[in-house]
Design a protein around this nucleic acid. Structure first.
Lengths: 205, 205
DNA sequence: CTCCATTGCTTGACAGTGTCAAGCTCTGTA
DNA sequence: TACAGAGCTTGACACTGTCAAGCAATGGAG
């Protein structure tokens, strides 16, 4: 429409370039170690010049943050899918969210690790901060529905649930925690289930 | 002795240069964001040329790993000090270790975060891996002394204790978790205490 | 004592990086 | 047709990690 060329691919729309940059960033973040995800590598993958990103993102960190915001949205979607597949019991829903969280982090470990790296969330009103907020809201809602014992208020419950799953996957992906004797089948999901179940008393009455 | 100069500072011993590099790395790791801790900046701080580190460390990652190994040792010392100041009760000792762990991570957040960054532990027989192993041993011993309920074996106990403290401090330092209403006094230690206490049933009978 | 090999570090170079300034090429409007 | 501006490119700068070459000093052998 706005392009006189019928073929339409000779010249891309501005939004396309921006979207291509974010997509390329998200891909490279998972494909390469953090230090190798350079602004210029992202630009090359998106098929633009090395200075094109500067028209959309003030700095490298902002481009990375845009890719990481996509990561938060994918994580949120993953948790919601698992929650909706679980039953009606609040604890089962919370546990399903936790298992979905763990599954995402283990499938996209580099993206996940970078999401929690300080320095990419520039301000509380950035895209990435908002995506993180939507993610946290899923957890907060699930915790709010549980019937917790005396002394476990909502904030404490959210902290407990989150630090459990985050701590678990962080130790796994950093190589500090080897779970199980590694005999054939992957013991991680089973261990995740056992560990989450240990916190059950804090979320049931 | 080996130096003909009586002043003795004109020419430093080889071990001094290496130690100075490691010390400079440890300082800069805490003082600057990770991306700004360059090999050349460490060399400048140590007062040597930009290529001097190459004589002791094959790559930048190895120099960083040496600095991070010092971090693990400091963490280990911190946990031991707290444990020995606690009483004889196994649970109290384990909790003291956890609180020492949290205190270290919150005092040296950048060092702590980098210690768990994948890519710095090159092999299982590296200095950093061994320092991490010594650190883990403190936790393992403390968990071994506890009397845990049926179903909580030692590996599960270690995983639970570690992921709790690691998850907590990681979420705090990455800005994801704000604990308490931030009214004057720092609410973090109190929250840490409450959270650790929630896991008490897994470590007592 | 002289010579030489080795160690310990420096200087120099290279490709690659993030960021800034300038310029080119189209689009839309008058 | 001329103009204004957006969108992207090219070019440059200082900086990075790593490699090659070279200098100074030590220590041992002849």
């Amino acid at each position: 429409m706005a392009d006189s060329e019928a073929g339409g691919e000779r010249r891309s729309r501005p939004a396309d370039v921006r979207a291509a940059l974010v997509a390329a960033a998200a891909e490279l973040i998972e494909a390469l170690p953090e230090s190798e995800v350079s602004l210029r590598a992202v630009a090359r993958r998106a098929g633009v010049s090395h200075a094109a990103p500067a028209h959309y993102f003030p700095s490298r960190a902002d481009l990375m943050a845009a890719g990481l915001a996509e990561g938060f949205d994918a994580l949120t979607a993953r948790m919601l899918a698992r929650r909706d597949a679980a039953g009606d019991d609040p604890w089962e829903q919370l546990k399903a969210i936790g298992l979905g969280y763990i599954a995402f982090a283990l499938e996209r470990p580099r993206t996940y690790a970078m999401m929690f790296q300080p320095g990419y969330i520039t301000g509380p009103d950035s895209d990435m901060a908002r995506a993180g907020e939507r993610c946290r809201a899923v957890l907060t809602d699930a915790v709010a529905k549980t019937r917790r014992p005396e002394g476990v208020d909502q904030d404490l419950g959210v902290a407990l649930a989150w630090m459990n799953v985050h701590g678990f996957v962080s130790l796994i992906t950093s190589g500090m925690l080897k779970c199980g004797p590694t005999e054939g089948a992957n013991p991680t999901p089973a261990m995740a289930d056992r560990l989450l179940s240990l916190t059950r008393p804090a979320f049931t009455k």
